[in-house]
Design a protein around this nucleic acid. Structure first.
Length: 431
RNA sequence: CGGGGUGUAGCUCAGCCUGGUAGAGCGCUAGCUUUGGGAGCUAGAAGCCGAAGGUUCAAAUCCUUUCGCCCCGACCA
């Protein structure tokens, strides 16, 4: 992308409404624009990040055997009356009505809808198990939206739902998602802490939240030292095998949310930390299938209520969480897998024909994941703005080094410069 | 939903106490200069002072109402 034509409104000063670092940087780097309390427009640069996160989430969901569909944002109230949640959900539910005065709502989640779809389509245990997911905008009318996209009212969520014939099979679906989540977050460069969470009135211990440790985290956690220090590496997983041993690596170590915390079990190895919840997996048995009469015929010919689970990833929240985890005084420091552009090209002397020719060649040959400052005016984005928006690598083309056919490569994370030949650059960043 | 703030140019803010009809810095536009790091000089454009009502000869400023936004708490991906 050429900066001369790119819509990237950066700000030099901190917007007053943004108090935490990720929110400030998102506004300053031109990722988002606030349109109302807790509601944001995603500007081109922010949308690119969002799309890279979506891609990773989608790939890992598919790999784990989940299938993508897309459900609408607007739902009929009737569905929610079936499950009883139309009354239970309270004011967080945005209720609207159409021209016929039909009660509708902007979906905060999709258990009811997916249960209805599944119930009407699947009649036999032979079609189980299935995991379905979608990535769709949600609306929850939060009491107090804050922290930018981390607690917005409108947010993008990956929500998945599993359907199984019995609880044993359901546990296997749940384990798939557990492992898929670890892989997903690890690919984004994040260390996610699986944390035993309150499973509410349903009971059971199959409710885990995935947290990113951050000072500004909204949740208080108690985590075993080993979990914080451990360095889980991504690995190939056979999802059809027994995944329990992978999960035990985490579950055997103590990590709990504040609600689940038992003071009597405090030891020196348990550390109190703050986290940002970026995922939540939850096995809730037959809660919805019972309420909504979702049954299939079992192998014995009798009708059986579906065993279900739901699995959420806060996709838009992850953008904020990533910035909380990866930034410095100059701005954002994106991990390569989610950076809006992999590479920036900076022309230090725009009226030097040699510099410009080299920049043009690099830009044309290095694919479309490149942001090139091709403007001849000395305004707007300069090196410091490349730092602000956090591109992992910048190629700096200046008249001094160019005489030897060399350019500088800056590593955003370390701040180090390296002089390389143009061929070496081409080879390194070839797509 | 309780508590506390705040609303003046695109952004950050001053002016309000002590009413006299709009300011700064940055950004933007134009020209000249500059060119290895978010440039300098000069000139310029830009605001129904969140909205409505009231007091007054006169309101950004005082009073009332209302709306937006932010922060702290309780609830949530």
């Amino acid at each position: 992308m050429r900066l001369s034509s790119y819509f990237m409104p950066t700000l030099k000063e901190n917007p007053i409404e943004a108090q935490i670092v990720s929110h400030r940087l998102m506004l300053r780097a031109g990722l988002i624009y606030q349109t109302a309390s807790g509601i944001y427009a995603w500007l081109p640069l922010g949308l690119r990040v969002l799309k890279k996160i979506i891609k990773i989430v989608r790939e890992e969901q598919n790999r784990a055997g989940a299938q993508e569909l897309l459900m609408p944002t607007i739902q009929l109230a009737d569905l929610w009356k079936e499950s009883g949640r139309y009354n239970d959900y309270g004011k967080e539910l945005l209720r609207i009505s159409d021209r016929h005065n039909r009660e509708m709502l902007f979906g905060p989640t999709n258990e009811e809808m997916i249960t209805a779809i599944f119930r009407d389509s699947v009649k036999s245990f032979r079609e189980l198990p299935k995991i379905l997911y979608h990535i769709q905008w949600k609306f929850r009318d939060e009491l107090r939206p804050r922290f930018g996209v981390m607690r917005g009212r409108e947010f993008l969520m990956k929500d998945g739902y599993s359907f199984d014939i019995d609880s044993l099979s359901s546990k296997r679906s749940y384990n798939r998602m557990f492992v898929a989540y670890m892989k997903t977050f690890t690919r984004m460069g994040l260390k996610a802490i699986p944390t035993r969470a309150d499973s509410g009135p349903i009971g059971g211990d199959l409710s885990y939240e995935f947290h990113i440790l951050a000072e500004n985290g909204d949740d208080t956690l108690f985590v075993h030292r080993d979990l914080i220090e451990s360095n889980w590496k991504n690995r190939d997983v056979d999802y059809d095998s027994d995944l329990q041993f992978i999960i035990d690596e985490f579950v055997n170590k103590c990590a709990v949310t504040e609600e689940k915390y038992d003071l009597t079990k405090m030891t020196n190895d348990i550390i109190k930390v703050h986290g940002i919840e970026v995922g939540h997996i939850f096995n809730f048995g037959t809660k919805y299938s019972k309420a909504m009469n979702a049954k299939v015929t079992g192998s014995n010919g009798k009708l059986v209520e579906l065993e279900m689970g739901s699995y959420g990833i806060g996709v838009s929240r992850l953008v904020g969480a990533l910035i909380e985890a990866f930034h410095d005084d100059a701005g954002i420091v994106w991990p390569e897998s989610v950076a809006p552009f992999r590479l920036g090209i900076i022309n230090l002397k725009k009226n030097d024909s040699c510099c410009s020719a080299v920049c043009e060649k690099l830009y044309n040959d290095l694919g479309d994941d490149v942001l090139y400052d091709d403007r001849d005016e000395r305004v707007g984005v300069k090196l410091t703005d490349m730092d602000l928006i956090g591109l992992p690598w910048s190629i700096i083309v200046g008249p001094r080094s160019i005489v030897n056919d060399r350019v500088e490569l800056k590593n955003r994370k370390t701040g180090e410069y390296q002089e390389l030949s143009i061929e070496a650059i081409m080879k390194r960043f070839a797509t």
